[in-house]
Amino acid sequence: MSVPSEFARRRSATIHDVAAASGLSRGTVSRVINGERYVSAEARDSVMSAIAEVGYVPNTAARNLKTKRSHAIGLIVHEPHSLFLEDPNIGAILLGTNSVLSAADYQLVSLIVDSERDSDRVAEYLRGGFVDGVIIISARENDPIGRAVVAMGIPAAFVGHPPDIDGIAYVGIDNVQAAEAITTRLLHTGRRRVGMIASALDRDSGRDRVAGFRAALGDAFDPALVVDYPLYSYDSGVEGMRRLLDRAPDIDGVFAASDAIAAGAMDVLRAAGRSIPKDVGIVGFDDSAWALRCQPPLSTVRQPAGDLGRMAAQRVLDQLDGRESATGGTFLETVIAWRESA
């Protein structure tokens, strides 16, 4: 049975159709579509009007073959799927990254690494040339993705800085200084038995926050009052606070390595009949949505997560355009948000 003509598939508009509708040459149309210079504003307006008139859609695949660019940047997140959804910092970094890439007409591609199989799959994907560069969040020591990126030599930036990988640009914060500053302020409220629920000791942020905590305590540091867990999660705070109470029932101060951890710890303290901050003062890290959901509101370190994403994206774009080398670090400032929890 024949298909009625009104249902016949419409022929896709071509660059020749745009040229005919605009009254300009195919070369001029091509320069406008490819964003090249040396095109008058009048000609550019005519081409854009013609594109809208004929319904032309650029052939991205053909353009990518010609330019040898995918116009996509991968955002690699080394976290379990559950934490990807739970951690507000990851979302803020993602949105910051996307804002810069979108303005530069690049597509953000999210790649979540939750297992060794994911690492192998993502590394193979990168080798396939599907992205022009990568931004890597939460990379650990002995990270196979980081090593693969170094070996491939593609433009890249870490958010954070794995100490065993060189040759990749990075942006971050001074976790040692920030942790020391907020622990010192907690001590100035008169706390004498202060513990820490640490996390992510296989990456720079986790280790550096412990180092800052230890520096603030000096000779009063007690390793028995530090417990650690793999993830910056609410559950880590619950389990960690229970362990600290078992070890030191007289504990009167806690530094949690993230706001999510602090939220879990605060729930355990309340269930144990401890008043916050009267009996136990507690501080966190990030100034994420968790901090304001806590009762009382959480004293914490404000981490500029969105700015970290924006800066990392810009560093990758600068490498693609030849404006920057692939090495060196940039640190952004943090501030203490002091609230009722301490």
Rank of each mutant, 00 (worst) to 15 (best):
E36P: 00
G218P: 12
L298Q: 00
G128D: 07
Q177C: 10
A326D: 15
V280Y: 00
A220Q: 15
V3W: 13
G74Q: 06
I251R: 13
G253E: 01
A289I: 04
D132P: 01
F255Y: 10
V47E: 09
P163M: 15
V134Y: 05
L95E: 08
I33V: 15
V113Y: 05
A220P: 06
A104P: 00
I76P: 07
M241V: 03
L244Q: 03
A216K: 12
V268Y: 04
G190D: 14
A157F: 11
N64M: 12
V301Y: 07
L85W: 12
M48N: 11
H16D: 14
A156R: 00
K66P: 05
A211Y: 13
T67H: 10
P58V: 00
D228A: 14
N34L: 04
S275A: 10
V134D: 01
V316G: 04
E124R: 11
S115E: 02
G128A: 08
I168D: 11
R63F: 08
V268G: 01
P277L: 07
D118S: 13
T334P: 06
D132L: 02
M1P: 04
L111Q: 06
S46L: 15
V131E: 06
L101A: 07
A291F: 04
F213D: 10
L186I: 08
S82M: 12
Y38Q: 12
L65P: 05
G133D: 03
E333M: 12
R191N: 09
V176A: 05
K66D: 02
D259S: 10
G133N: 04
G329S: 14
V171L: 07
G273P: 01
I336D: 13
Q303S: 08
V122T: 03
V283R: 03
W290A: 06
A41D: 14
D307N: 12
P162Q: 06
E141L: 13
K68I: 04
N64T: 01
T67Q: 10
V171S: 14
G329P: 09
G129D: 13
E324Q: 15
Q319E: 15
L101E: 03
G91A: 11
T184K: 05
D287F: 05
D235V: 09
I73N: 06
T334D: 06
A72G: 12
A291P: 06
G55D: 08
I15E: 09
G281C: 01
T97L: 09
A224T: 14
R247H: 06
G172H: 08
A215Y: 09
R11F: 03
K278Q: 03
A289N: 03
V194A: 07
V29D: 11
V39A: 07
N98R: 13
G281V: 00
I137K: 02
D87T: 08
V301A: 08
V171E: 07
P58Y: 07
R274V: 00
